[in-house]
Amino acid sequence: LDITFHVDGKNIHVHGASEEVVRIIEELIKNNARAEEIKETLERLLR
């Protein structure tokens, strides 16, 4: 699975993920999660 995301100002662009995963990533970023935390969360979800 190949998910890429980047933050452009306040806009979060996520590619290669389901809508549910996109929402989770957006929440994590809004809550100022570190990249490592986001990665760990995604790995748990995608197991």
Rank of each mutant, 00 (worst) to 15 (best):
6 H>K: 05
46 L>A: 09
16 G>E: 05
39 K>G: 11
34 R>T: 13
39 K>L: 15
29 I>C: 04
34 R>Q: 09
10 K>R: 09
4 T>A: 08
41 T>D: 04
21 V>S: 05
11 N>R: 08
9 G>V: 00
25 I>N: 00
19 E>F: 10
11 N>C: 11
2 D>Q: 03
30 K>D: 06
17 A>Y: 01
43 E>Y: 03
47 R>L: 11
33 A>P: 05
10 K>P: 02
34 R>H: 13
14 V>D: 00
18 S>P: 11
1 L>R: 12
39 K>E: 14
5 F>S: 06
31 N>I: 09
20 E>M: 10
28 L>G: 01
23 R>N: 09
7 V>E: 08
8 D>L: 02
37 E>Q: 13
44 R>L: 11
38 I>G: 01
46 L>P: 04
30 K>N: 09
22 V>W: 03
42 L>Q: 00
42 L>F: 03
37 E>R: 08
13 H>F: 08
19 E>I: 13
23 R>P: 01
34 R>S: 13
34 R>F: 07
10 K>Y: 11
1 L>E: 09
47 R>E: 13
12 I>W: 07
5 F>A: 09
1 L>W: 08
37 E>S: 09
23 R>L: 10
4 T>V: 13
14 V>F: 04
47 R>H: 15
33 A>G: 09
20 E>P: 06
40 E>R: 12
35 A>M: 15
23 R>I: 09
43 E>H: 09
25 I>K: 00
17 A>H: 01
47 R>M: 13
18 S>H: 05
12 I>S: 00
30 K>R: 14
45 L>D: 02
12 I>N: 00
22 V>K: 06
44 R>Q: 12
2 D>S: 04
37 E>L: 12
3 I>L: 14
35 A>D: 04
46 L>N: 07
17 A>I: 13
21 V>N: 03
15 H>Q: 08
19 E>A: 13
23 R>M: 12
14 V>H: 00
22 V>I: 14
15 H>V: 09
20 E>I: 08
1 L>Q: 12
14 V>L: 05
4 T>D: 15
26 E>P: 00
31 N>V: 10
45 L>H: 07
25 I>R: 00
18 S>D: 08
13 H>Q: 07
23 R>H: 10
22 V>L: 07
35 A>H: 13
47 R>K: 13
13 H>D: 04
18 S>F: 05
19 E>M: 14
47 R>G: 15
38 I>E: 01
24 I>A: 10
30 K>T: 09
20 E>G: 09
36 E>M: 10
3 I>Q: 03
42 L>W: 02
31 N>M: 13
37 E>W: 06
17 A>L: 08
33 A>L: 06
18 S>V: 05
25 I>Y: 02
25 I>P: 00
29 I>E: 01
36 E>G: 09
6 H>L: 14
26 E>Q: 14
1 L>F: 12
